[in-house]
Amino acid sequence: MKKFVFPLILLLAATSAFAETPDWNRILTHIDDMTNFNDNDFSSEITVVTAKPGEDNTVIQARYFRRDKAKQMVIVILKPDVQKGQAYLQQDDDLWFYDPESRKFAFSSMKDRFSDSGAQNSDFSSVQLHVDYSVESSGEDKLGKFDVWTVMLRAKDKSVAVPGLKLWIRKDNDLVLKQEQYSLSNRLLRTLAIPSYQTVSGHFFPVMMLEVDNVKVGEKTQITFKDVSIAKLPDSVYSKSYLERVNQ
């Protein structure tokens, strides 16, 4: 009898392990599908509040447009007044920053800070987790009242801005609740928390994101998205001439 017990335990363990190993390709693709807007335009008003130790909070309000299918994005800053009219334009892999004072466009990067706030330009672009990353390790955890998967992702390609990502993903609906971003040297750079989502035509979009800079200790950023819409926008919105026009 004893000789059957050990193999049985092994078999049970293996079965349970197999049952609990999620299909990461499906989950990552699902996350991308839920959070990207490939069939519609997306627009919203964003507020970025940055808190730095020993400094007053800075608040930036902006209008935000995205067309993920064409890899296009526009952000036009509305407040503060000194930055009014400054804008970002993404077309494919290129990102430009427009300064209405000099009326010039300068090359920017997704990894750069968004208008000197604690947020990064990449926080506003669409993500392609299933394309850009491969799974290195995974596990289970509990985050607040939610059962979550934890997964460590590594960039497949050298051009992906964040080389390492650790995600906390709700088991019941695949929504990412928390994210840690790691450098190429595997140092923790930033921690993002997304406490709640809003649904827009079957897509999910954060109501708010909280970001903690793990390098510049004490620096925190809160990004709020409101007045979300998926109404079709004219093609001209995603152009340099539009940014010049809105400043006239």
Binding site: K158, P163, L184, V215
Partner: peptide
């Protein structure tokens, strides 16, 4: 001193 920088390909990195 920590140094935040990018690789030539644009990946984020941190040196100590």
């Amino acid at each position: 001193v920590l140094v935040e920088l990018q690789t030539v390909h644009g990946q984020q990195n941190l040196g100590e």
